[in-house]
């Protein structure tokens, strides 16, 4: 029984390795094939593949669907699902290409001892060590028939944990946190109230920045403004309590965000969406000049 389990695990591992190797060989074969063709030939292939892929997705979205096995489908739904799975694999391969590009650039820096090659060496060492430990950790998490796909090592796990949890995560968080300090310094030095627009911006910023945090509520209620919207608000929206409630910093901040900010954001998003649609059509029909083939 144990032998059968081991063989099954070994089989699964080899199968996975074979799939990965074959996928890489296939990808590089395809790239090689494209390199062999003339520029016009390459362009024709890329244009045709782009158009057909776009057409399949557009048709799948627009064609009416019928309920099949509890799911709404048309004849393109299942093929599209397979293409989407394939896309996930292709996106994964993009990581490989990116890594290859990084390695090539920085290896060249180190070998030719270009300026600041030490940084390149440090990047390469970090990349290799973290990549190795990370893959080991991920494979160690995977179980086949209740057994880890790859035996984990306590020391390696500890080093991975130190590198990931105690270094990468902390440094990443620290880098982003520094922005707060730059904003503080920049706001102090550069935010000058020199015009009506700047004054309006400053007043709005004051209301929103204080109004959205608990301090805004504390200040408003501290000066005697009502804590809750009066129940008679629907009948008497201009009662004194209702007006005083509207003057609370959190109420004003909420109004600015929902009534002034949201429509402006919506308008920007609408513009971006129309622009995105135009770009998508240009890409689909290969009308963009820099096709890179």
């Amino acid at each position: 029984m144990q032998l059968a389990l081991d063989m099954s695990r070994d089989g699964a591992t080899w199968m996975m390795a074979a799939i990965v190797v074959l996928a890489f060989l296939g990808m590089f074969g395809l790239v090689f094939l494209l390199q062999m063709l003339s520029t016009q030939g390459r362009r024709a292939i890329v244009v045709a593949v782009t158009f057909i892929a776009g057409l399949i997705f557009a048709l799948e979205f627009f064609l009416p669907a019928q309920p099949v096995d509890g799911q709404d489908k048309n004849f393109l739904s299942d093929p599209t699902l397979q293409i989407q799975n394939f896309l996930q694999v292709v996106a994964g391969m993009a990581l490989g290409l990116g890594t290859y590009g990084l390695l090539r650039l920085h290896l060249r820096n180190v070998v030719q001892k270009r300026a600041q090659w030490g940084y390149s060496a440090s990047l390469l060492i970090s990349l290799v060590v973290m990549g190795f430990l990370s893959i080991w950790h991920s494979l160690g998490e995977k179980n086949v028939e209740g057994q880890p796909l790859v035996a984990t090592n306590e020391t390696a796990e500890y080093i991975f944990s130190v590198l990931f949890n105690n270094m990468i995560v902390q440094m990443d968080a620290a880098m982003f946190s520094l922005i707060a300090f730059y904003i503080f310094s920049a706001a102090y030095r550069a935010f000058r109230i020199r015009s009506i627009e700047a004054t309006i911006l400053m007043a709005t910023a004051m209301i929103v920045m204080i109004g959205i945090v608990p301090l805004g509520k504390a200040i408003s209620e501290g000066i005697g403004l009502p804590a809750e919207l009066p129940p008679e608000y629907a009948k008497e929206p201009f009662s004194l309590t209702a007006i005083l409630y509207s003057l609370k910093l959190p109420t004003m901040a909420d109004w600015i965000l929902k009534t002034l900010n949201a429509p402006a954001t919506r308008a920007i998003e609408f513009g971006v969406a129309v622009g995105g649609l135009a770009t998508a059509i240009r890409l689909w029909l290969s009308m963009d000049r820099g096709l890179g083939v």
Partner: peptide
Amino acid sequence: TDLIAAIRGMGSNLSEAVKQDVEG
């Protein structure tokens, strides 16, 4: 890797789109 593909895939068939959890 691709959230749109993943959402559409999971919307049709979860086990086809994701196959395994983090523990395999």
